[in-house]
Design a protein around this nucleic acid. Structure first.
Lengths: 155, 155
DNA sequence: ATAAAACCTCAAGTTAAGTTGGGGTAAAGT
DNA sequence: ACTTTACCCCAACTTAACTTGAGGTTTTAT
């Protein structure tokens, strides 16, 4: 027999935030964006089911790969009942994202190779150097944005 | 004998924009940010020296590598007299940026390898899975943001 | 019982890299 | 000469992913 939502949803925002290493405001934000959901107690405070923790870990893992929240949301939407990804679901999502990652890596490798060729030749010029080309011939498949860490290595 | 600025700066914004494939507003923006400079004619219109074309091509090439305008500006600032990079300068800048690119590639490769390991194991969990780890052990050297193309491959 | 900690909502601010638009001037084409 | 086209400046808008703050309520701890 299934417990009801009020019984299942016991975690407060503060607890979830702490366990996930995110701010409370981030949880509000994710909820607003439809990435997670909560229930309310008598006093109108949010209460979460434990599964939200896994959902957030999937979000964070995906973000690390450069997947946008919008894309993550769309990926979740493909799951039956928009459920929190279980092992099988994760397998499927992760495979897609891995392809994405591979594409991105190839792009950067191409870029680096061209760059290596360009260093020393001084060819850099509009319309000729592959490094400067608005049509972007390097982007065979097309890649998305990657936002990684904030520990930026200055050059 | 050196020609003066008025003689050298002959290109209008429109011309530069067209030849570089950027909008006029972008050139205004770059100037405001201190990435390029212009002179003014009698009627207060911008006039550029031809070297601005090369400068913009360097900016665009760097952006493609995921370097921010701020970092590009800082890199330019390291050049004698903040000049437009010549062949030798470009060699130096490009070498630095290539390292940056390499670091970024390694990061993504690590991420992909972990992901491959995770697919099927379903281990994804806070504090244990390397894919979800706020301390980011994957980021050995630390990497910056990469903003590449807009041709995003949906997953 | 009371005070402190946690929570609520809603609006506005933040950063990057530009874009858009309005109102007005300059240069170019015919 | 006259009309387009190009240019000027400035302010405000755009997107993503959040953060901050104000003013007020609920829980928890003492």
């Amino acid at each position: 027999m299934m417990k009801n939502n009020l019984e299942e949803a016991k975690l407060t925002v503060g607890k979830v935030a702490k366990r996930c290493g995110v701010k409370v405001s981030t949880l509000h934000f994710y909820e607003e964006k439809g990435l997670i959901r909560s229930w309310r107690n008598q006093g109108n405070q949010r209460r979460y089911k434990a599964e939200v923790l896994r959902r957030i870990s999937v979000i964070k893992a995906a973000q690390k790969m450069g997947i946008s929240l919008q894309e993550i949301k769309e990926a979740f939407a493909t799951l039956p009942n928009n459920r929190t990804p279980d092992t099988k679901d994760w397998e499927k999502l992760a495979s897609n994202w891995r392809e994405n990652l591979t594409t991105r890596i190839h792009y950067l490798e191409n870029l680096r190779d061209y760059l290596s060729g360009c260093i020393g030749c001084g060819c850099l010029s509009l319309n000729h150097c592959p490094l400067y080309n608005k049509d972007d011939e390097l982007a065979a498949e097309g890649v998305g944005p990657v936002i990684l860490d904030r520990k930026v290595k200055k050059v």
